[in-house]
């Protein structure tokens, strides 16, 4: 363990499994995440991406396996912790959700939304909290007059900025982005991707980036896990996965992406290698 800490690991997952009514949703998944990197998790719907990250964050309880997190007080194992023990760790692990319309409380102002995590974790005085809220608002490039407005007054892209600010206000180390740019138009998506990358550099964030859009993953990730039917079928650097994929399933997934070049035609998918 001390060895991996020297390598700068932030998270180590070992043989993680989660079953729903006996059906494996995630089975025997192992990987590690290094500090300040972006690890992409790709796969089709039902491949277990979201279940995996939810089990890591203990939003659901994993059935088997170990999740080691390098917290500010040293290495801890998350899988057996009580909800109470997890509370201080929640500050260090946050999530940015897919749908900025569903993930913000419509009856709270932006200030209330951003201040709530600080109040829950008893961070700072009222003045310090407002200062932190203003500072985070500037980080996500929203105007200060946003503070008194409600989520409905914002566009999808602006709402996603609020969601990002809410996740980052506790200054977490690990940020899980679950399809965080999937619901956005391409122009807004580009702005949010750029923002996530800027914030990563400024704040030294580590991202677990769940996405089904392979072009987004190729742009933003350093390493990638490819999931299929609850298992990791291949992992590697983004270049290894995209340039020289080894597994038939990875090749199938990549070949399915329609090229924006009309002279590169889409070939019929070949599932024969997979026995599907």
């Amino acid at each position: 363990m001390s060895e991996s800490a020297a390598n700068g690991s932030l998270l180590e997952v070992e043989s993680l499994s989660k079953f729903f009514d006996g059906v494996p949703a995630v089975e025997d998944v192992s990987f590690e995440v290094r500090r300040s990197e972006t690890l992409g998790i790709v796969g089709e719907s039902g491949s277990g991406k979201t279940t995996l990250v939810r089990a890591i964050l203990r939003a659901i309880d994993p059935d088997r396996g170990i999740v080691r997190f390098n917290s500010s007080t040293g290495w801890v194992e998350l899988q057996d912790m009580t909800p109470k023990e997890l509370i201080p760790l929640r500050r260090e692990m946050q999530m940015i959700f897919q749908d900025p319309f569903a993930s913000l409380n419509p009856r709270m102002t932006v200030r209330e939304i951003l201040e709530e995590p600080l109040i829950i974790h008893r961070v700072g005085s009222a003045t310090q909290r407002l200062e932190a809220v203003r500072d985070m608002l500037a980080h996500v490039q929203l105007e200060e007059d946003s503070l008194t407005r409600y989520p409905h007054a914002f566009s999808g892209g602006q709402r996603q900025r609020i969601g990002i600010a809410r996740a980052l206000i506790l200054r977490p180390n690990l940020v899980v982005c679950d399809e965080s740019v999937s619901a956005l138009d391409v122009s807004v998506q580009a702005q949010i991707i750029n923002l996530l990358e800027e914030l990563q550099n400024e704040l030294g964030l580590t991202y677990l980036f769940v996405a089904h859009d392979l072009s987004v993953v190729q742009h933003i990730c350093d390493r990638v896990l490819v999931m299929h039917r609850g298992r990791v079928v291949e992992s590697g650097t983004v270049d290894e996965i995209f340039e020289t994929p080894k597994e038939p399933y990875t090749r199938l997934l990549l070949s399915a992406v329609p090229s924006p070049d009309p002279d590169v035609p889409l070939k019929p998918l070949d599932r024969s290698e997979l026995g599907l």
Partner: peptide, 21 residues
């Protein structure tokens, strides 16, 4: 031109994506 430039995956890595604006 903006719509096409904003597609991720075509842009070189490490360079911010072009936005339509």
């Amino acid at each position: 031109r903006g719509l096409l430039a904003a597609i991720p995956g075509l842009a070189p890595k490490g360079v911010p994506l072009a936005t339509i604006a």
